[in-house]
């Protein structure tokens, strides 16, 4: 209780209060000084800290860039195709971490062929571990449909885990912004970077599918899964974005599965009647070459897919796969 009638007490009280008021004013002044901003808010988009996807490619080896194996059993054709390129040992060294990027875009069962085949994924994972001596294999994608459903329904989640791989789902913190040198569309754009940041090798695995907008979805289009953000707006210029993806991603190896080809109603499919057996599997270190051969399975030619020529022009690979002297084989 303050005794207001006592002059002494009132003075002491006043001084104490004045001291506290002084400290409060000093604090308010300091905060104002430290936070003072005479420029106002910045306009435009903040440039995030940019990242660059590492180069996962391996040295060129003449005559061992692309192998094309015919056969009804994709696991057998896969084994053969990799063997013809020098075996998995050429691509994966002991102790390395390998990322596998299958096409897991849709929540659709394997029999419909809208996603990469789970047996194929399992086999590649096994090869990486058993023959390649990989330390760790990661299987990841940023699907269109709900990620957990995509990995479950496609069978890829279970197949990959059973083979010992780690399945990584897209989460916000795994996306980082990038700018592609020489690119027009990929500028300060979020990509699914996290899973690939600290890996040594990258293997892309994609089925051959009809795609109404771009003509075909194969190994190059498969990299669309690395794009984050509102990636759908790139459909306005689909050929350029696919070519830029081929410039941005330098994989160790790509596997194009044409065992069953989605001829119509792609890229979702939805019926087994959309599929046609082509019994072909392609392994290549050059995705442009792989896709240039693969488009034939859809009864298309290289000029039907302008992104192939664009990617070639940008130096991402060659559309003239014949010049690479593909190794042909048949299994079974």
């Amino acid at each position: 209780m303050t005794d207001q009638t006592s002059e002494n007490f009132g003075r002491r009280e006043f001084l104490s209060r004045a001291g506290k008021a002084g400290i409060s004013i000093a604090a308010a002044g300091t905060v104002s000084y430290l936070l003072y901003d005479n420029k106002g808010p910045k306009t435009g988009i903040d440039t995030e800290e940019l990242v660059t996807l590492p180069d996962f490619s391996i040295p060129y080896q003449q005559g061992q860039t692309i192998s094309i194996v015919k056969g009804p059993d994709r696991v057998e054709t896969l084994k053969k195709a990799i063997e013809l390129l020098g075996g998995i040992e050429r691509f994966v060294k002991p102790g390395e971490i390998v990322a596998i990027k299958p096409n897991v875009a849709f929540a659709s069962p394997p029999m419909l062929g809208a996603t990469a085949n789970p047996e194929l994924i399992a086999e590649v994972v096994k090869l990486c571990y058993s023959r390649g001596g990989a330390k760790k294999v990661v299987v990841t994608d940023n699907p269109i449909n709900e990620p957990a459903s995509c990995f479950t329904l496609s069978g890829i989640g279970k197949a990959a885990s059973a083979a010992g791989a780690k399945v990584v789902f897209p989460k916000n913190h795994l996306f980082k912004h990038t700018t592609l040198a020489g690119g027009r569309l990929i500028k300060n754009w979020p990509i699914f970077f996290g899973p690939f940041e600290k890996v040594d090798k990258l293997i892309g695995i994609a089925p051959v599918k009809d795609h109404h907008r771009s003509g075909a979805s194969m190994t190059m289009k498969n990299w669309y899964g690395l794009l984050g953000g509102r990636r759908n707006i790139f459909h306005q210029d689909i050929n350029t974005i696919i070519a830029e993806l081929a410039m941005m991603v330098k994989p160790t190896l790509v596997i194009l599965d044409g065992t069953e080809v989605m001829m119509t109603n792609g890229p979702t499919g939805g019926s087994v009647s959309d599929l046609r057996r082509a019994n072909t599997l392609i392994a290549s270190t050059d995705c442009v070459a792989a896709d240039s051969y693969g488009c034939g399975l859809l009864d298309l030619t290289v000029p039907d897919l302008p992104y192939l020529a664009k990617a070639e022009k940008a130096g991402a690979g060659t559309t003239n796969y014949e010049s690479l002297k593909p190794i042909f084989a048949t299994v079974g």
């Binding site: 849709f106 659709s108 269109i144 795609h211 109404h212 907008r213 759908n232 459909h235 306005q236 210029d237 689909i238 119509t264 109603n265 890229p267 979702t268 499919g269 939805g270 019926s271 009647s273 959309d274």
Partner: peptide, 26 residues
């Protein structure tokens, strides 16, 4: 719609239509 109103290619809707044959055609 971009292709209808603005002469820009797009058809993301067609791509994602899950039924076979697709309910969105072009």
């Amino acid at each position: 719609c971009l292709p209808w109103a603005m002469d820009k290619p797009c058809i993301v809707c067609q791509e994602n239509c899950p039924v076979s044959p697709k309910a969105i055609y072009t």
